[in-house]
Write a protein that binds this DNA or RNA. Structure first.
Lengths: 185, 185
DNA sequence: GCCGTCATGTAACACGTTACATGATTTG
DNA sequence: CAAATCATGTAACGTGTTACATGACGGC
C-alpha cells in the first residue's frame, strides 16, 4: 500500500465505480469495457490488469477472493470510494474530447466530392446500425433486476443519450451529404 | 527526409489537412487548435511543433518561408497530400471515442441523489452556453469569403453537428435530471 | 485427451500533457 | 522602454495500444 497523487486517469475511477456495484475480477471487468462501456470509455486488458494492480498497491482496492486459475476478485476500500467521490465532484476539469469522424469531415476537401459524399453515407449507415443495436439492447436488458442497483437509473440515462446521439448522427449525415454540390470537382 | 510507417496519429493528418488550405506556421496552427478545432481534436503547442518537425523530416511537409523570430511556414508535399488522402479513405479503423461526462453519469450512483442531479444540471448549463457560443460564432463567420475554400462547405457541416449536439445534450440532461427520484438516499 | 474459455500478466512503443526554457518584434 | 504578443522548442512523465507470453480449468 503506497501513497501517491492521483492526476487525471478516468480508468481508475471507472474501475472503482464498477467494483462499487459488486466485487469482480479483471476478466469480468474486461467484459464490461468490451460491451456496455465500449463506446464510453474503452480499455484494453493490459490496461485493466495493470491498473487493478496499481490500485490495490495504492490501497484503493483490496482482493476479496481468489479463485481458480489465479482469479482475483477486487472490491474498493473506503479510501477508494473516497477517491471516486472526489473525482465525481471534481467536474471542473474534464478530459478533452476527440472525434476522429468530425476531424475527417473538416478535412473532406482533400477528397473528391463523390468520395466526400461516400464518407458521409458511411457515417449514416453506421449510425443507423448503432441505433438498431442500442434499441435491441435496451429491450433485451431487464432494467428491474434488483442487482442492477443504481444502474437501473444511470445506465438507462447513458443508453438514452447514446440512442439520441445515434439518431442525431444519422439525420445529420443525411443532411450533410446533401450539402455537397452534385458535380464532381 | 526519412521514410517511416504511419500508424494511427490523427494529429499528423489534421496538420497536413490544415496546411492544404494555405501555408502556415506552428504558431498559426496553434490558434486553430485552440479555437475552431478545440472541441474536435485538441492539441498542445508542444505536440504541434514536434509533429511539424517530424513531418518535415519525413518529407510530408516542407518549409516554404521563414520570417522574423524564427517563424517557419510549412506546406504539404505531394507525399504529404497522398498520405492525407490515404488516411481519409481508410475510414475502417477509427480511433475509439471517450466521453468522460458519460462515464461520470454511469458512476453517479457513487454520489447522493442531490449531487447527481446537480451534476446533470451542470451539464445542462454548459451545453446551453456552448450552444449560445456556437450560434454566435456561426453568425460571425463570413462563410462566403473566397479564401475559405472547401471549409465553406465542410466547416459549416462540423458547426452544424456541434450545434445539434449541444441541443441534444441540453435537452437530454434536463430530461435525465428529472429521472432521479426526488428523495435523497 | 482436445478444445474453448477462463485468467493473468510483461515489454515495447505510440500518443498526449505539463513544466521548463528562451528570446525577438511590435505597439503604445 | 515596458509590456504584450509572436515564435520556437526540449524533457519528463502520464496514459493508451499492440504484441508477446503463459497456463489452468471445464466440458465433451
Amino acid at each position: 500500500m503506497v501513497e501517491g497523487r492521483v492526476l487525471r486517469m478516468s480508468l481508475r475511477h471507472a474501475l472503482i465505480g464498477l467494483l462499487r456495484e459488486s466485487p469482480a475480477s479483471g476478466y469480468d471487468l474486461m467484459h464490461v469495457f468490451n460491451s456496455s462501456l465500449a463506446k464510453v470509455w474503452p480499455a484494453t486488458k493490459s490496461q485493466v490488469y495493470t491498473e487493478l494492480a496499481k490500485l490495490a498497491d495504492a490501497g484503493l482496492l483490496v482482493v476479496t477472493a481468489e479463485g481458480p486459475r489465479g482469479r482475483k476478485e477486487y472490491a474498493p476500500t473506503e479510501a477508494g470510494l473516497a477517491e471516486l467521490r472526489r473525482w465525481m465532484l471534481d467536474a471542473g476539469n474534464e478530459a478533452p474530447t476527440r472525434s476522429e469522424s468530425l476531424l475527417r469531415v473538416f478535412m473532406l476537401g482533400a477528397l473528391t466530392r463523390d468520395q466526400a459524399r461516400d464518407y458521409l453515407h458511411l457515417i449514416q449507415r453506421r449510425s443507423a446500425e448503432d441505433l438498431a443495436a442500442m434499441t435491441a439492447f435496451g429491450e433485451h436488458v431487464d432494467w428491474d433486476r434488483e442487482d442492477m442497483g443504481d444502474l437501473r437509473i444511470y445506465g438507462r440515462m447513458v443508453l438514452e443519450f447514446a440512442t439520441r446521439l445515434a439518431e442525431l448522427s444519422r439525420d445529420w449525415s443525411e443532411w450533410a451529404a446533401q450539402q455537397i454540390p452534385p458535380t464532381d470537382s
